[in-house]
Nucleic acid binder design. Structure first.
Length: 525
DNA sequence: GTTCCTTTGAAGTAA
DNA sequence: TTACTTCAAAGGAAC
C-alpha cells in the first residue's frame, strides 16, 4: 500500500488532496434524506457497538444506563445549529483552509477536540435528541458555546494561549506562508512544551514574546523538547487547548511511563545506586517529540468529545470504533480537510524538528511488540485466546472463532466452545452480535482473500489477512480499490451498513474515498 | 500501576 | 517493492 510520503505530499501540495476528479454523487443527495439514512446507519452502528459492549461483559451490564436514551441532553447540543457547508479549497499548498466563518481561521483541531461538537440537525437516536451518525462538517468552526469539554463541563473558560498581537507569529524559521498559516492558528500548540523542558533542540529564540508561565500547562505534547522556545502556537492542530488537569496527569503519566520504558528498554535492571538513579532521571528527561497526528487522529481528537457526549460511552475503544466508521462516512471533502491539516502538521513538524524521525520514538510507547513474524503461532493468537477464555471463564484449547476471527466477544467462538464442551453458555449470542452475520461475510471475504491459517486468529491490525486488511479491501482510506467502481457498495465487511452484513446500504452512504495524498484518483462515472 | 483495547494513517524496518 | 510494525490520542477495562 503506497503511502504518501511527507515530502511528496508536500511537493504535490493540494493537488493530491484536491483531487476532484472523482465524481461525488453522494453530495447530491438531499441533506434530509442523507441525515435520515445516516441516522439509521448510526442506529445500527450504535446498536452494533452496544451489542458488542453488552456482550463483552459477561453478565453485568457493561454500560449500565448508557444504552438508554437520555433525556438530559447537554445544552451544548441544544444550542447547536447546523453549520453552513463550507467551501473547501483544496488547491492550495500552504494557505489555511478557507473557513466559512470568515477568512482563514480554522478552528484548531486540537482545540475542537476538547469541545463537545454538537451534531447538526436533530439528535434523536441514541443521544438525547440527537443523531449519532452523521458528524457535522469536520471543518466546521465551533463557536464559543461549544467549548465545552467533557472534562471542562464546569464551564472553564479557555483563554487563548498564544495571543499573538498584531497577527504576528513567532515562527522565525518558517516561511512567510507558513508563518501566516501558523498565525491563523492562534491557538495552543499541539506540540506543547513541557514546563520541565530541557535544553533539547529548540529552534525558537528565547526572546519569543511568550512567557513560559503562559505555556507551562498547555505544552505537554512535545513536552521537553521545546523548552523555552515555545510558544509555538503552532499548527492547526498543533495547538491544543489548555489541557485539563486530568489531561496533564494522564499525559504526564503516560509520558513518564514511556520515558521510563524507553530508558529502561536497554536495561531491564533497575539502577541500584543513586548515580544510576540520577542517570535514569536524566534519561527520563530526554525529550520525546511525538509524532504529528495523522488525519484520522486529528479527526478523532476533534470528534471524540462529541461522540462521547452523544453516546455516553466512555470506553475509548468503542468510541474509536464509532469514529472509525464515521471517518469512513465522511465526505471526501471533509476528509480532505483533515488530510490537509495533517499534512500541514507534518510539514510544521518537519520544520520544527528537522532531524526528528518517527524512529526516534520507537520504544517509547508500550513495550516493544514482537514482530509478527517473530511470534510463535501461539503468540499470534494466544493473547486473544487467553483473553477470550478469561472473559468467558472458559478453558478450552486452541479454539478460536474461525468464522469471524474476532478476538472480542464472539458468538461463534462461544458456539464452538459450546459445541466442544457441550456445556458452555452463550452469554452474548444476540441477533445483532457483531460476530454474527457480519462476520460470516467477513469470513467469506477472508477465505477468499487470505490463505492464512484459519486456526490462527488474525489479531494483528496490520495483518494483511486480518480484519484490517479485510476491511481495507473496500476501505478507500487504507487502500483504494481498483476502479471502477471505486467504492463498491458494501464491500467493507466490517461496516455495519454493509448490505453484505445487514442488507441496508445505499450507494450514498458508503464511506467515501478519502483523499490519498500522492494517490491518483481515478474518475468514476 | 501497567497494559490492553480500538481506530486510521504515517513512517519505519526487514526481506 | 512488499509486508509488517510502531506510534500517534483517548480513557475505561483488565491484569
Amino acid at each position: 500500500m503506497p503511502h504518501a510520503h511527507s515530502s511528496s505530499a508536500a511537493s504535490s501540495g493540494g493537488d493530491d488532496l484536491g483531487s476532484t476528479d472523482e465524481v461525488k454523487v453522494f453530495k447530491d443527495e438531499g441533506d434530509g434524506e442523507d441525515e435520515k439514512r445516516s441516522s439509521e446507519n448510526l442506529l445500527e452502528e450504535k446498536s452494533s457497538l452496544i451489542d458488542w459492549t453488552e456482550s463483552e461483559e459477561k453478565s453485568g451490564e457493561p454500560y449500565p444506563g448508557k444504552l438508554s436514551v437520555k433525556s438530559d441532553l447537554s445544552p451544548v447540543f441544544g444550542k447547536f445549529e447546523p453549520h453552513p457547508a463550507a467551501s473547501f479549497n483544496m488547491g492550495y499548498l500552504m494557505a489555511p483552509y478557507p473557513y466559512p466563518n470568515g477568512g482563514a481561521h480554522p478552528l484548531p483541531v486540537s482545540m475542537t477536540g476538547k469541545m463537545g461538537l454538537p451534531a447538526g440537525g436533530s439528535l434523536s437516536l441514541f443521544c438525547p435528541g440527537g443523531e449519532l451518525g452523521q458528524p457535522p462538517p469536520a471543518h466546521m468552526g465551533i463557536p464559543p458555546p461549544y467549548q465545552l469539554d467533557s472534562k471542562l463541563a464546569a464551564g472553564l473558560a479557555r483563554t487563548p494561549m498564544y495571543p499573538f498581537p498584531g497577527g504576528t507569529y513567532p515562527y522565525p524559521m518558517l516561511s512567510p506562508e507558513m508563518s501566516q498559516v501558523a498565525a491563523s492558528w492562534h491557538t495552543p500548540s499541539m506540540y506543547p512544551i513541557s514546563s520541565a523542558a530541557s535544553g533539547f533542540r529548540s529552534p525558537y529564540p528565547t526572546s519569543l514574546p511568550i512567557s513560559s508561565s503562559s505555556l507551562s500547562s498547555e505544552l505537554y505534547r512535545f513536552s521537553p523538547t521545546l523548552g523555552g522556545g515555545l510558544g509555538l502556537g503552532l499548527g492547526p492542530a498543533l495547538v491544543p487547548p489548555p489541557p485539563s488537569k486530568s489531561d496533564l496527569d494522564s499525559h504526564h503519566s503516560r509520558y513518564a511511563r514511556s520515558l521510563e520504558k524507553g530508558s529502561n528498554s536497554s536495561s531491564s535492571d533497575k539502577p541500584s545506586d543513586s548515580s544510576a538513579n540520577s542517570n535514569n532521571k536524566e534519561q527520563n528527561k530526554k525529550p520525546h517529540i511525538k509524532k504529528p497526528l495523522n488525519a484520522f487522529m486529528l479527526y478523532m481528537k476533534e470528534m471524540r468529545a462529541k461522540v462521547v457526549a452523544e453516546c455516553t460511552l466512555k470506553e475509548s475503544a468503542a468510541i474509536n470504533q464509532i469514529l472509525g466508521r464515521r471517518w469512513h462516512s465522511l465526505s471526501r471533502e471533509e476528509q480532505a480537510k483533515y488530510y490537509e491539516k495533517a499534512r500541514q502538521e507534518r510539514q510544521l513538524h518537519m520544520q520544527l524538528y528537522p532531524g526528528w524521525s518517527a524512529r526516534d520514538n520507537y520504544g517509547y510507547g508500550s513495550k516493544k511488540k514482537k514482530r509478527k513474524k517473530d511470534r510463535s503461532p501461539a503468540e499470534l493468537g494466544g493473547n486473544n485466546l487467553k483473553k477470550c477464555r478469561a472473559r468467558y471463564g472458559l478453558d478450552q484449547q486452541n479454539q478460536w472463532c474461525k468464522p469471524c476471527r474476532r478476538k472480542k466477544k464472539c458468538v461463534r467462538y462461544m458456539e464452538a466452545l459450546a459445541a466442544a464442551s457441550g456445556s458452555v453458555p452463550l452469554p452474548m449470542a444476540t441477533p445483532q452480535s457483531p460476530c454474527s452475520e457480519e462476520d460470516v461475510k467477513l469470513e467469506e471475504l477472508s477465505d477468499a482473500s487470505s490463505d492464512g491459517d484459519a486456526d490462527t486468529p488474525l489479531n494483528s491490525a496490520s495483518s494483511p489477512g486480518g480484519l484490517s486488511a479485510l476491511s481495507s479491501l473496500a476501505s478507500p482510506a487504507s487502500d483504494p480499490p481498483p476502479a471502477p467502481p471505486r467504492n463498491p457498495v458494501g464491500t467493507n465487511p466490517r461496516d455495519a451498513n454493509n448490505p453484505l452484513s445487514v442488507g441496508q446500504l445505499t450507494s450514498q452512504s458508503w464511506p467515501r474515498a478519502p483523499p490519498r495524498p500522492g494517490h491518483e484518483v481515478i474518475s468514476v462515472s
